[in-house]
Structures are given as structure tokens and as C-alpha cells.
């Protein structure tokens, strides 16, 4: 059988997966080397579009992805702005996707990164994602269409890259109206250095543009015609994340996995790490009723040490109230 460009996408996936884990080493939140939805959320917070202090930071990875893919598209003569089909429907769909992603605490990209970090909650996300794709394909088979797009002027397509440059300037200049999560104040405070994040984003943007990396497309191709090219890129990301996390864990002595805690046996390995107070379940009150694993999910909020919870009511599943 023809290789069909599979080698290229696998190599790209391996590089992307390794970069994702290394970004955590350089300071990003656990299992969050990349998360498109979370990073857009943080960037929106940085611009003051929402007022949730734990998640406010203009993420250079997003800027890098936009500028990297834009540059390579220009170089390869593939820059071809299009638009004009069903804009309100697309807006509404995008709105719903973002809500879904933030409830899951990750985009499809981070879903794979979470799996590479041993967070098996992401398996349920993967199952839901696959069902969503099947539903979408069913609608399309029944004739649903967003109708045709039209060619737009290059200036139209240049607006987003220009906005990315403005974001970068705002991040570096840090004027008073840009919000930054306070140190230890939540996942927004956890980030790699700007240059590292920017270069990492640019590399991933270039690779994704060249390989057309697409999780939804990957599953669609497997379902529709048993083609594994696109999905192999994500399998490579998973493998690279897993191996890089293992290496980083061995070399640094830290944990890059969502392993059960040695002390309490729960999935909450937030001890000494940042967790979101409202969502953290005290280790002394039994299991986590939501099944959610805060440290791997995003690492919100304030720092707390194991066993220092002020809530001693003992109510099973009661959420911990931090001192």
C-alpha cells in the first residue's frame, strides 16, 4: 500500500508531542503544553474580555501557531483567504465548541496530550468526540451543508496574523490594561518563557499547516474509508508525549503523569501543585465525585499542601475550602 505521506505526518507528530511535554517542563500547566481552547480562554482573560483571575495570560503559543502557519502558507503559495459561508451558523457552532472544550478542559489536541500524561478521563472525551463526528457525518450525509465560501482579498486574510502581532506587542509591553494572573494564582501564572512558547507555537503551526493535522479529519478518514494517515499524526503525538514525559520524569525527578497519589490514592496529585479551590476535593473526604482530576485538567487556583485542608467536616465528597 502506498505510504501516502504517512512518514511526514508521523515525524511531525513526534516533534509536536515532544514539544508539548517540554513546554510543561519549561513552565506550562500540567498536560498543557498546548491547548487551543484553554489558551484562547487565557488570552481572552489577558485582554480583559473575562474577569476570571486564574486564567489571564496572552499565550504566545497561539500567536506562534497563527504566525508560523501563516508564514509557511505564504512561502508555499497556499495563502488563500476564503469566507462568506453561513457566518452566523459558524459563529454559533464555534461558540458551542468552545463551551464544550472548556467543560472538558481541553481541545482535541490537548485530549491526546492528556492521554499521553496518563489522564484517562480523556478517553471519555475521545469517545464523545468520536460520537460527535459520527453525528456530524450523518447530518452531512442527509444533505446538510454550510454552503460555498468565496475568495476574499488578501487583506481580509491578513487581519488575524496582524492581530497576532498586536497581541505579541501587548504581551511584551504589558500595558496596565492587560491582565496577568498573579504568581501562584492559577494556570494563567504557569507558562514557559515568551520566546520558548512563541518558537514552539511557530514550529507546531508550520508542521500542522504542512501535514494538515486534524483530529476530526483523522477519525473521519478511519470511519469513512479506513485511512490512517491523519490519525497516525495524533498517535505519534501521544507516543512522543508519553515517552517525553517518562524521560522528563526520570531526569528531573518530578512527575509528568496523572498517577494516583501515594498518600491518598486518589487521582489528585495536586499536592504542592496548584489546583482550583472550587473544584478540589479534599483527600480526607473520600473519592472525587466528579471523577475529575484537577492537576491534569488545568491546575487552577491556589497552592495547597496535602493534608492542610481546613475542611474537616468529613462529609464524603465535600469540596475542600482552602484556608
Amino acid at each position: 500500500m502506498k505510504n501516502n505521506g504517512k512518514t511526514g505526518i508521523i515525524i511531525a507528530g513526534l516533534i509536536i508531542g515532544a514539544i508539548a511535554s517540554l513546554l510543561v517542563y519549561f513552565g506550562n500547566p500540567a498536560n498543557m503544553g498546548f491547548c487551543i481552547a484553554c489558551f484562547i480562554r487565557d488570552t481572552a482573560g489577558g485582554l480583559g474580555l473575562h474577569q476570571a483571575p486564574p486564567v489571564q495570560y496572552i499565550r504566545p503559543e497561539i500567536i506562534g501557531i497563527i504566525l508560523g502557519s501563516f508564514a509557511i502558507a505564504l512561502v508555499k503559495g497556499e495563502f488563500s483567504p476564503k469566507g462568506g459561508s453561513a457566518p452566523l451558523t459558524r459563529f454559533a457552532i464555534g461558540f458551542c465548541i468552545m463551551i464544550g472544550c472548556l467543560m472538558f478542559l481541553g481541545c482535541p489536541f490537548r485530549m491526546i496530550i492528556r492521554l499521553g500524561g496518563g489522564d484517562l478521563n480523556a478517553l471519555l472525551g475521545l469517545a464523545g468526540f468520536a460520537l460527535g463526528i459520527l453525528a456530524g457525518v450523518a447530518f452531512l450525509n442527509m444533505g446538510y451543508s454550510l454552503k460555498r465560501t468565496y475568495k476574499l482579498a488578501p487583506t481580509e486574510g491578513g487581519i488575524l496574523p496582524a492581530a497576532a502581532v498586536v497581541l505579541l506587542v501587548l504581551l511584551i509591553a504589558a500595558p496596565a490594561f492587560i491582565h496577568f494572573t498573579e504568581p501562584e494564582g492559577g494556570p494563567g501564572a504557569k507558562h514557559a518563557a515568551i520566546a520558548i512558547s512563541l518558537v514552539a507555537g511557530a514550529i507546531v503551526g508550520c508542521l500542522a499547516q504542512r501535514t494538515r493535522l486534524c483530529m476530526a479529519g483523522g477519525l473521519r478518514d478511519v470511519v469513512l474509508f479506513q485511512d490512517f494517515r491523519l490519525i497516525s499524526g495524533f498517535i505519534a503525538i501521544f507516543a512522543a508525549c508519553l515517552v517525553t514525559n517518562l524521560i522528563l520524569g526520570a531526569v528531573t525527578g518530578g512527575t509528568y503523569f496523572h498517577a494516583p497519589c501515594r498518600l491518598c490514592g486518589t487521582g489528585d496529585r495536586s499536592h504542592g501543585r496548584s489546583v482550583e479551590p472550587a473544584r478540589h476535593v479534599c483527600s480526607r473526604t473520600g473519592s472525587n465525585p466528579s471523577g475529575r482530576m484537577p492537576a491534569a485538567s488545568a491546575g487552577y487556583g491556589r497552592r495547597r499542601q496535602h493534608g492542610q485542608c481546613s475542611d474537616s467536616s468529613g462529609t464524603a465528597g465535600r469540596r475542600c475550602i482552602l484556608p
Partner: peptide
């Protein structure tokens, strides 16, 4: 002008 995955469908 059709968006992915409509051309394939």
C-alpha cells in the same frame, strides 16, 4: 468553496 469534509462526502 465547500468546507471539509463536504468535498469527500
Amino acid at each position: 468553496g465547500l468546507s471539509c469534509p463536504e468535498p469527500v462526502i
